[in-house]
């Protein structure tokens, strides 16, 4: 464990807490893509199959359980409790375009050809692009509530912090995880546009609005 990874994980944790806070305080899931949230639940469930047979640490175990539980809870909130506040007509990204290629890539690139390992690869590729329905929705509506942008910023920071973590591990532990690194760089790159607007507008006290 190094500080980059620790702060990355904490940022991930913070993003989920911000999202729950957004839903609770506005009593609405307006502006949140159900599809992205469903993809994240899929990512965690397919990645953490090792929960049942591989013990890493109490930290690792607790985080995995938290990510699976919170992502399912968010789906429940969106699907049932605050259902009327979600507008499916603007959440129109075709998730087949993400699920299909992720499955193909997982079959081509994995560390071992076993069910949990192929699912692990699948979850890595899927996570890299799972934010796209959310960013697509943002692009369509052209604006976002400030708290929603804080959620996205924390999520993006988590991904960004994993990159120095890998560089650090490469030098200190002589370790490299080519699948996670490649997908992680793609994933972080997807946030660049968002970060630009976040830093130049939201952090200057303005509303998140995309130019028309």
């Amino acid at each position: 464990m190094n500080l980059f990874r620790l702060f990355g994980d904490l940022s991930h944790l913070a993003s989920i807490i911000i999202l729950l806070q957004k839903i609770r305080s506005t009593r609405s899931c307006r502006g949140i893509s159900f599809k992205t949230q469903a993809l994240y639940a899929t990512v965690f469930i397919t990645r953490y199959l090792d929960l049942f047979y591989d013990w890493v640490s109490l930290y690792n175990f607790t985080m995995k359980v938290f990510f699976i539980a919170s992502s399912c809870y968010i789906l429940y909130l969106m699907r049932y409790k605050y259902r009327p506040t979600h507008d499916p007509s603007i959440d129109t990204f075709r998730v087949e375009y993400l699920l299909g290629p992720s499955a193909v890539l997982a079959l081509l690139f994995h560390y071992r050809f076993t069910v949990p390992e192929v699912f692990w690869s699948f979850s890595i590729f899927l996570e890299a692009v799972a934010i796209l329905p959310q960013l697509f929705m943002l692009q369509r509506t052209g604006e976002a509530e400030t708290i929603t942008t804080h959620y996205l910023a924390a999520l993006g920071a988590y991904r960004a912090l994993y990159i120095p973590n890998w560089i650090y591990r490469y030098f200190t532990e002589d370790m490299v995880d080519p699948i996670a690194v490649t997908a992680g760089i793609v994933q972080t790159a997807l946030y660049l546009d968002f970060f630009y607007v976040y830093f130049t507008k939201v952090l200057q006290g303005q509303k998140f609005e995309l130019p028309a």
Binding site: R47, V56, N60, M63, Y111, M175, V176, D177, P178, A180
Partner: peptide, 10 residues
């Protein structure tokens, strides 16, 4: 460098 043998990251 060695490839990651087990998945200890989240």
């Amino acid at each position: 460098p060695v490839e990651m043998k087990r998945h200890d990251e989240l």
